[in-house]
Design a protein around this nucleic acid. Structure first.
Lengths: 149, 149
DNA sequence: CCAAGATAGATGTATATGCATCTATCTCGC
DNA sequence: GCGAGATAGATGCATATACATCTATCTTGG
């Protein structure tokens, strides 16, 4: 098949989704060796940083529908990476890394660091920093002002 | 639930995936009124720009596995938005907008433009341009140099 | 022309993801 | 304390998405 040039997409959403797909493949190629999907790694890392949080709070942090987390956390729970218990408010589900999860994360981090720095090197410090800041900014903007003008 | 501050994620991939989710919800909230998912809109728009392409070429353009397109194009074909036919090479599937697809796109574009400019206004011209360029750059980098150092 | 290897998609399977809806709980006014 | 309305997650359903594998077809050396 001929080399179709990567076109500039005019849609910011389409653009982000495309880059997400590309990046996900890039990271998962490495993560595969340790049996983790991108989302699962993100959750491990987020829990490691945040400590114990409710499912809803985790959803907020990751801009992910908390009901979507029900399934992903189920998978991770079955693998023994997270520990859950009901909160004082019995409707809530509180989540934290299990010790197996901590061990898993410790083993995975070097793999992640390698992909991460490989990309950082390719992109350059400046673009790297800009991207982290800009994507964070977009997420905040879109999430907090949501539907308003 | 208390307002958990949106943390900075150290992982570029996780960052992009989070922003993608947020943006997708933002755009789909608007697109819902015209019965389109983000991916479907992207494909309509891409076909409108590219004309007729093979399934593989479309996958390249969108950094999407061409076998994933089999299902999405199936859905869109059933809705009558795309027309397909076998290529001279009988293994290939060539895709273009049907006239119903063109009409659909024409009806959807104003809705898209509105979300799009709403976001552009919030972000500011400068960040907007930077993002389009940087995301494009990342996609190219990751896709072309893929696994290499 | 033919067999061997390459390639484009189709299909099976697993995860990711959101929304609508449902259930269990909680909160608050009375 | 009770009932009405709010809230956290669970569940049903649809789409999105990738990879492994399979099939049909093409290409190419002999």
């Amino acid at each position: 098949m001929s080399q179709t040039l990567l076109p500039e997409l005019p849609c910011m959403c389409g653009n982000f989704r495309r880059t997400s797909r590309a990046l996900t493949q890039f990271y998962e190629e490495a993560l595969r060796s340790v049996g983790l999907r991108a989302t699962q790694f993100t959750i491990l890392q987020a829990l490691s940083l945040a400590g114990e949080v409710s499912q809803g709070q985790l959803g907020e942090m990751l801009a992910m529908d908390s009901t979507s987390l029900t399934r992903t956390l189920g998978i991770m729970s079955r693998k023994g990476w997270v520990a859950e218990h009901r909160g004082e408010d019995r409707r809530e589900r509180w989540i934290r890394l299990s010790s197996a999860g901590e061990i898993k994360l410790k083993r995975v981090l070097p793999v992640w660091e390698k992909v991460q720095s490989r990309l950082r090197r390719k992109l350059g410090q400046k673009a790297w920093r800009s991207l982290l800041e800009l994507t964070h900014q977009v997420t905040e903007l879109v999430k907090t002002q949501g539907g308003s003008l």
